[in-house]
Amino acid sequence: MTREELTEAIILAKKNKGLSWEDIAAHLEMGVVWVTSACFGNNSMPEAPATKLCSLLELPDQAMTTLMEYPTKSWGRDVPQDPLIYRLYEAVGIYGTSIKEVVQEKFGDGIMSAIDFSIDIDKEENPNGDRVIIVLNGKFLPYKTW
């Protein structure tokens, strides 16, 4: 079973069972963004949550192996066409150098880890239009000198 076939099977089972990504993540006792990412083939899923997911969604036997495979992490280099993804791309494009400057002013010369990392997404109701809150929480890794 390829990653693409697995993702398709997961989305179909999710839809047929009337589940949300929040429902699935709660069942696995894991973060919703990470679980969704693993279901889309961007992370390998450890055995225990993979077993729970396969059981919950009644996935075929081959799904377990595919869920646990180490992915090659890559993405297209073209500007994203999906409006929501494009806006995130645009925000980093416009504010990226400013974010970098502020992070380095506070922490020093280094990077934010995307390995020791989490993402939380929240909704804030607002009379002027509901707000999307995205929190990127990564460990600071200073550049080494030698």
Rank of each mutant, 00 (worst) to 15 (best):
residue 25 A to I: 08
residue 68 M to C: 12
residue 86 Y to H: 09
residue 114 A to H: 15
residue 123 K to S: 07
residue 9 A to M: 06
residue 63 A to P: 01
residue 90 E to Q: 10
residue 77 R to E: 05
residue 6 L to Y: 05
residue 106 K to Q: 11
residue 50 A to P: 02
residue 96 G to Q: 04
residue 127 P to D: 09
residue 44 S to I: 04
residue 82 D to S: 13
residue 139 K to Y: 06
residue 19 L to P: 05
residue 120 D to G: 10
residue 133 I to D: 06
residue 7 T to H: 06
residue 59 L to F: 03
residue 136 L to R: 08
residue 74 S to M: 13
residue 68 M to I: 11
residue 59 L to N: 03
residue 49 P to L: 07
residue 121 I to Q: 09
residue 41 G to C: 01
residue 124 E to K: 13
residue 45 M to I: 05
residue 95 Y to A: 15
residue 20 S to L: 03
residue 16 N to I: 00
residue 8 E to V: 06
residue 118 S to R: 15
residue 89 Y to Q: 02
residue 23 D to T: 08
residue 136 L to W: 11
residue 55 S to V: 10
residue 104 Q to Y: 06
residue 26 A to K: 15
residue 100 K to I: 06
residue 144 K to F: 12
residue 35 V to G: 00
residue 46 P to W: 05
residue 115 I to C: 14
residue 85 I to T: 14
residue 66 T to M: 05
residue 3 R to W: 01
residue 21 W to F: 11
residue 42 N to C: 09
residue 85 I to P: 09
residue 124 E to R: 13
residue 84 L to S: 07
residue 78 D to Y: 08
residue 30 M to L: 10
residue 16 N to C: 04
residue 132 V to W: 12
residue 90 E to V: 02
residue 60 P to S: 03
residue 104 Q to N: 15
residue 26 A to R: 15
residue 83 P to Y: 11
residue 17 K to S: 10
residue 122 D to T: 06
residue 94 I to E: 00
residue 20 S to Y: 06
residue 33 V to T: 13
residue 129 G to A: 02
residue 93 G to N: 01
residue 100 K to H: 12
residue 103 V to A: 12
residue 16 N to A: 08
residue 124 E to Q: 13
residue 4 E to N: 03
residue 101 E to R: 15
residue 126 N to P: 05
residue 60 P to K: 03
residue 138 G to A: 05
residue 146 W to E: 13
residue 17 K to Y: 07
residue 64 M to I: 11
residue 98 S to R: 12
residue 49 P to F: 04
residue 57 L to N: 03
residue 3 R to Y: 04
residue 38 A to G: 10
residue 44 S to R: 11
residue 62 Q to D: 13
residue 140 F to D: 08
residue 26 A to P: 04
residue 96 G to C: 06
residue 75 W to S: 12
residue 34 W to M: 00
residue 86 Y to S: 04
residue 88 L to C: 08
residue 35 V to D: 00
residue 126 N to A: 02
